[in-house]
Design a protein around this nucleic acid. Structure first.
Length: 436
RNA sequence: GGAGAGGUGCCAGAGCGGCCGAAUGGGAUGCCCUGCUAAGGCAUUGAUCCUCCGGGAUCCGUGGGUUCAAAUCCCACCCUCUCCGCCA
């Protein structure tokens, strides 16, 4: 959520920033929100004034009754009762306007960082690193898409996964399953130097998904477990961000950096029919996620560090990759500034997004009620609190990295060499397929 | 799922429907006392919103209700603890 007060203090600035996002209707929503905000303020002032009178009268009533002046008390009670009726109607109006405003605000995207590149869509995302490790030519045996080679090797069995759960579910077997698990462990170990490992719930509350921005606007993208008012977490970002919801942290304990391996569940409602083959897009997939709570001052450096970590994971696997910055037209609703790491898969002949690292500003913190208190040089707490900044990003998205390994490391005989950094986790498997 | 107990400030813990944003104790902070420490004395110690900066409103698990007035009464829900059941 953007800062509601900006609607009063810098409406033009908000509009200017959000117009860069090229999302239809946003400016109208801002105008509408601004009007509602003004009205709400007006109503709240009136209501508070009436409440003040009622409170004052009630006190007098108490005094009169205490002194035995019942007639005076009765008179004041009557007066107060009338005020109460006024307050009630104002209160109803206040609640209605407040609900409408809140709904609007929850749908208004975050303000993009001034340095984020302008652009209309994903075609305008500038490449800022690489490509690194990309070959001029790929031999024919690496031009085989993984859904063919992996099925041949017997390490991917999506046909049977479909039998179990339907289309767009995947299943790895044998060395393929081992490889998927190895990637999780690798992703965690690589970042354990700076992150606390979390194993969080996979089913999360409506509040948790609202905090991160998936709700209310993108409800169709998530699996809902209606009976229990829970949602299958579409990313570990959701549970990780709600860990400190409604808490006030100390600036001295920031940044708090967490990582989690989790399964992620997505209905992929908006991308039905896209990337339906292999491991490129599935309803359920595993990844290792990084998350940070920070002060506004710490955030830029953390963003760079998290991108570097995502990059390093791919680089050390020996996969060709590049880093792009997401332009204003392609950014997610909650994002303030975002970088993607993409890996090249020669078989599918595509750049696959394997990490998306974002700085959310205080957008999610405001929704989740995550605050922090500053402390002075002398270590004493200062007056007041601020919303924290949050950042998150995938340290390693398993399926697409898995696919990229199968395609990039495919040998002429159809076997797949396991990247060296994964050897500690592969139970001795260094080559997939062939006579092991 | 069943039975019972409970959810109050940084912590513990009290709270007749009005004098309760909240006793008391602990902690923390400041000052005094003191050669130092300990002990002691005094004081301070929540957040959010609005503000004509005087102040006003709200918050005692959450949401409703009763009342001139609710931490206190009523209803629903959530969570925690104990016992039983079930279970990895």
């Amino acid at each position: 959520m953007i800062d509601q007060r900006l609607l009063r203090t810098d409406l033009d600035g908000v509009k200017e920033a959000l117009s860069r996002r090229a999302r239809a209707g946003t400016i109208d929503d801002i105008d509408q929100a601004s009007r509602l905000d003004a009205r709400l303020l007006d109503i709240a002032r009136q209501r508070d004034a009436i409440r003040a009178s009622v409170n004052g009268l009630s006190k007098q009533v108490g005094q009169f009754r205490h002194d035995g002046k019942m007639d005076d008390a009765d008179a004041l009670q009557a007066e107060s009762r009338e005020l109460g009726a006024q307050e009630k109607s104002l209160g109803t109006e206040h609640d209605e306007v407040s609900a409408a405003l809140n709904e609007l605000l929850l749908g208004i995207p975050n303000l993009p960082h001034p340095g984020a590149p302008d652009g209309a869509n994903e075609d305008d995302n500038p490449v800022i690193v690489g490509p690194i490790g990309l070959r001029e030519e790929y031999p024919p045996h690496q031009r085989v898409p993984h859904w063919e080679s992996a099925e041949q090797l017997g390490i991917l069995d999506n046909e049977r996964a479909t039998k179990i759960s339907g289309a767009m579910f995947t299943m790895q077997r044998g060395a393929g399953a081992t490889l998927a698990r190895a990637l999780c462990q690798y992703g965690l170990d690589l970042n354990a130097d700076a992150h606390e490992e979390i194993r969080a719930p996979s089913l999360v509350s409506t509040a948790a998904l609202t905090a991160t921005g998936q709700l209310p606007k993108f409800a169709d993208d998530a699996y809902e477990i209606e009976r229990d008012d829970l949602w299958a977490s579409p990313t570990a970002e959701a549970p990780l961000t709600s860990i400190y919801a409604q808490e006030t942290l100390k600036d001295t304990e920031l940044p708090i950096r967490l990582m989690a391996h989790s399964s992620s569940y997505r209905r992929e409602a908006g991308s039905a029919g896209r990337d339906t083959r292999g491991m490129l897009r599935a309803h359920e997939f595993d990844k290792v996620e990084m998350m940070a709570y920070a002060t506004p001052e710490q955030a830029p450096e953390l963003l760079d560090d998290m991108v570097a970590r995502a990059e390093r994971a791919i680089a050390e696997l020996g996969l060709p990759y590049r880093v792009i910055e997401i332009c204003t037209g392609d950014m997610g609703q909650s994002h303030h500034r975002t970088y993607d790491v993409e890996v090249y898969a020669p078989g599918a002949d595509a750049w696959l997004e394997v990490s998306s690292v974002s700085w959310l500003g205080d957008y999610q913190a405001r929704r989740a009620g995550i605050r922090f208190r500053r402390h002075g040089e002398d270590g004493k707490p200062l007056k007041g609190t601020e919303f924290a900044h949050t950042l998150n990003g995938s340290a390693l998205a398993v399926p697409r990295v898995w696919a990229a390994i199968i395609e990039n490391y495919r040998n002429e005989d159809g076997t797949v060499t396991v990247p060296e950094v994964l050897h500690p986790y592969m139970r001795g498997i260094t080559v997939i397929g062939g006579s092991v």
